[in-house]
């Protein structure tokens, strides 16, 4: 009986694993210290970090354009961070990312109510306006675009980054 139960559990894990392997990666919590981990994890690689939120009108327009950009530029690490305040809605966030073609990028969601501290770690001058895009070069230089980014500007930066490789 116990063995049969173990077998069923094992089968369940196997099915769950296969399902999860095929599924989009989960939204990652963005907490105190996450920003430094992101910088370290992508050091030396051209990285685009996009801050957005489900209630932000201009974000809704920009997100699908960013999805296409990510698809067209596999050499650029694209990261999204939902920076709306808690209580947040992971389901709505994931749904908008999926629709924008950003299911498979590295996606975070602010998960600490003390947003002043989260924002301070990223950029002490940032007051929370979204959308906001940070372009991190191979050498670690950060260029911040406030408001909706022009895709042409992203293309130009991307071209420079990939050309210098």
């Amino acid at each position: 009986m116990r063995r049969r139960f173990a077998g069923i559990v094992g089968l369940g894990i196997l099915i769950a694993s296969v399902t999860m392997l095929g599924a989009a990666p989960a939204l990652k919590p963005f907490e105190r210290g996450t920003w430094q981990s992101v910088l370290k994890g992508h050091a030396g690689r051209p990285t685009l970090v996009h801050f957005w939120g489900v209630t932000c009108g201009p974000c809704k327009v920009e997100l699908p354009l960013l999805g296409q950009f990510a698809k067209d530029h596999p050499g650029i690490d694209v990261i999204t961070i939902s920076a709306d305040l808690v209580p947040n809605l992971p389901a709505a966030t994931q749904s908008m990312l999926d629709k924008a073609g950003l299911s498979s990028t590295e996606n975070f969601i602010f998960s600490d109510g003390f947003v002043e501290r989260l924002r301070f770690e990223i950029d002490p001058a940032w007051q929370g306006d979204i959308p906001r895009t940070m372009l991190i070069s191979r050498d670690g230089t950060i260029t911040t675009i406030e408001g909706s980014a022009e895709i042409a500007d992203l293309e130009k930066w991307s071209g420079q980054q990939l050309a210098t490789h």
Binding site: G10, I13, L14, A16, S17, V18, M20, L21, A23, P25, A26, L27, K28, P29, E31, V86, P87, P90, I109, S111, G113
Partner: peptide
């Protein structure tokens, strides 16, 4: 099998943390 279990648990780490946060809230 262990590898698959480990893989299954990896993305779950993020989920668990999200659930933990919800629990605290």
């Amino acid at each position: 099998l262990l590898g698959i279990v480990a893989l299954a648990l990896l993305p779950g780490t993020a989920l668990a943390q999200m659930h933990g946060q919800h629990a605290s809230e």
